[in-house]
Design a protein around this nucleic acid. Sequence first.
DNA 1: CGCCGAGTTGAACTGAATCAAGAAACGTGG
DNA 2: CCACGTTTCTTGATTCAGTTCAACTCGGCG
Lengths: 201, 201
Amino acid sequence: MIILPVANKKAMYDTLRIFFHKLIPKLDDETWNSFVSLQQVKHYKKGDIISEEGKTNNIVSFIQKGAVMVYNHLDNKKCVYNFFFENEYTGDYESFLTRKPALYGIEAIEDCILFQLHYNGLQLMYEKHPVFERAGRLIAEAQFLRLTTRNASLLAEKPEERYLNLIKAKPQVIQRIPQYHIASYLGITPEALSRIRKRIM
Amino acid sequence: MIILPVANKKAMYDTLRIFFHKLIPKLDDETWNSFVSLQQVKHYKKGDIISEEGKTNNIVSFIQKGAVMVYNHLDNKKCVYNFFFENEYTGDYESFLTRKPALYGIEAIEDCILFQLHYNGLQLMYEKHPVFERAGRLIAEAQFLRLTTRNASLLAEKPEERYLNLIKAKPQVIQRIPQYHIASYLGITPEALSRIRKRIM
DNA sequence: CGCCGAGTTGAACTGAATCAAGAAACGTGG
DNA sequence: CCACGTTTCTTGATTCAGTTCAACTCGGCG
């Protein structure tokens, strides 16, 4: 993992600014610049651990490029909770909020470029630029909505339905994520997923 | 469902104020009074539908007394997503946030007294008293954390483990909720739960 | 008293887990 | 560019937990 010198800072943060513009259109340049000044650009290689289970997680990352997965280990078994791609925020949001050791780890599934923001930096934004409270609320709400859907899927759908819905909702996952991670995400074994795929084709 | 005349308004909202005081200690009386003035007190009987699936949900409810459950119907099957008790907020938060028809319904499992807040009322609070943005963010974050735990449980635990953890985490549920609703919440049939209970005793 | 909803029990069935082995894809170094 | 080893995916046989369907019990209530 390395920190790169930045060639064209303005253009680089375009996607990030678009992301925030959708949340708080009245975002002014001064606020934006102080936000940008808090960002760290980091590169990770496929397979790198971006944040570790068990450590308190002080960072949230905006994915400029790449793909990551959120996972943890329960009873010696790796469970995959989610995948994130370009233009999404990732991080162990739970640990970030509670300031407790992370229950989840984050791993780069492809080479990644991330914009990282430290917990203290975000608190600073909340204090100095209260308009960011709204962004924080909207992001938390969006995370909540995402989990709501996931919940309904885990509770009410059979693995086969979950797989079919995943194809519809996030075709990227099928293209970019190894099958045994998808199986874990669906709550089944790789063998079971292999058989489901055979069955529905 | 009836709207009661209020005898002792101050004392009545004590638990609600305590709830918000934990989120925003610097809450002043003026802000609090304008918040209270937006509340509606409603009584529901056991079995009443507090908010219906399919209708856009404009209300969040603080449970002053009673117990409710959040559910929906998928493939003609009733799925129970959660139970809420005294001093918790409930509502189809998803529909409330997205302004789309509710995917979930809410039913009174015991006679209930609720403090209800309309969507427009909350937006008004956000505009007039920005300190409420923080409360909104913290509530959204808390909801998110709750769902995170639930998610991990559905993904990684077997029904039997889920039941044992439920007993530990929310003993109220075992006391106050009919078993077939608990079974649905755990993602299994009433028969299966009956057998699990037999097995572990 | 008889009804009805909730809970229990039994028997047959089903889909996923597990264990084990083999095939295919991938990447790394020569 | 190929060869080899590792990782990922597939297939088969067996086991097991939960589903389904049906019958029966229990307790409250008109």
